[in-house]
Design a protein around this nucleic acid. Structure first.
Ligand SMILES: [Zn+2]
Ligand SMILES: [Zn+2]
Ligand SMILES: [Zn+2]
Ligand SMILES: [Zn+2]
Lengths: 141, 141
DNA sequence: CTTAACTTGAGACTCATTATCAATAAGGAT
DNA sequence: ATCCTTATTGATAATGAGTCTCAAGTTAAG
């Protein structure tokens, strides 16, 4: 935890940004959950805890965290983007139920490797990828 | 061509919708290009050809075409969604340059198969998938 | 403690897309 | 062909996620 705060401080320093309690709270809030939440959910969760922060600051802080790979942005095809922290969490992709919105995580190393090869083939320097499977989950079928 | 118009008529009939010249023109416009274009580009292209159609109708028609798998919607991570027709075009995914926006297409059958297995594993009935690699293309590096 | 520079938050704004609704067009029945 | 009912169109308003603005408040270097 203290370790993660240090990480935030370092990143802010690297960006020439100041360490403020709002940024700290946003980061702690994102760290506190393993869910995939949108900016507004994060904002409201903070508000409910009595922490005064604005939507703008939530978005601004998330931007930095995403840039430094501490948070992942997830476009789920409809509605707002979702976010999840990447601390102690290995890379995974998502399979999403189109009816109930349930999100499950999966990893297939073979796919990850094949992606790298595609990038090489097209002479792209790979930065990130989106791999999302949309379907109907067992409960909704 | 006539074949594709028939397809549109069938689809509209199935949906209880009427076959109108606007819908026909939108479909023909999308068919006429192999590019990945957004709704506004399609709209303007029609306008330039002197075809009177509104943005709303372009969006509405695309919705139906996407629903019936005649057009694919492509979320490129920034800006408006892009569309491409799926007639005589086999499935492919996309590798996108984050600087210049260039879009290349790729297919790896092994990945496609692995996806199916993931869906099975999670008891999802797979409907569609997004697989997009974001990076920097050779020219932009 | 001062001061310059950065950050915050309320609200205005943007942009893509969707909704509204009066006017128009389609197409089945006669 | 002419009605007549219903669907469609398009101009415009509305929406929703996210960004921008700027005055007021904080931060931290000196
Ligand atoms: Zn992956
Ligand atoms: Zn996840
Ligand atoms: Zn694929
Ligand atoms: Zn394509």
């Amino acid at each position: 935890m203290t370790n993660n705060l240090k990480k935030l401080k370092q990143v802010l320093a690297k960006e020439g940004l100041r360490f403020t309690c709002q940024r700290e709270e946003v980061w702690k809030e994102i760290l506190s959950s393993g869910e995939h939440r949108d900016a507004d959910e994060i904002y409201h969760s903070l508000r409910e805890k009595g922490i005064s922060v604005s939507r703008a600051t939530v978005y601004r802080t998330i931007d930095v965290l995403v840039k430094y790979n501490m948070v992942r942005k997830l476009d789920v095809g409809v509605g707002p983007s979702k976010f999840e922290h990447k601390i102690d969490i290995s890379h995974h992709d998502h399979i999403i139920c189109m009816k109930c919105g349930k999100i499950e995580e999966f990893v297939v190393n073979q796919i990850e490797n094949l992606q790298e090869r595609v990038a090489e083939q097209y002479s792209f320097k790979l930065v990130r990828h989106i791999h999302q499977l949309f379907g109907i989950c067992k409960d909704c079928q």
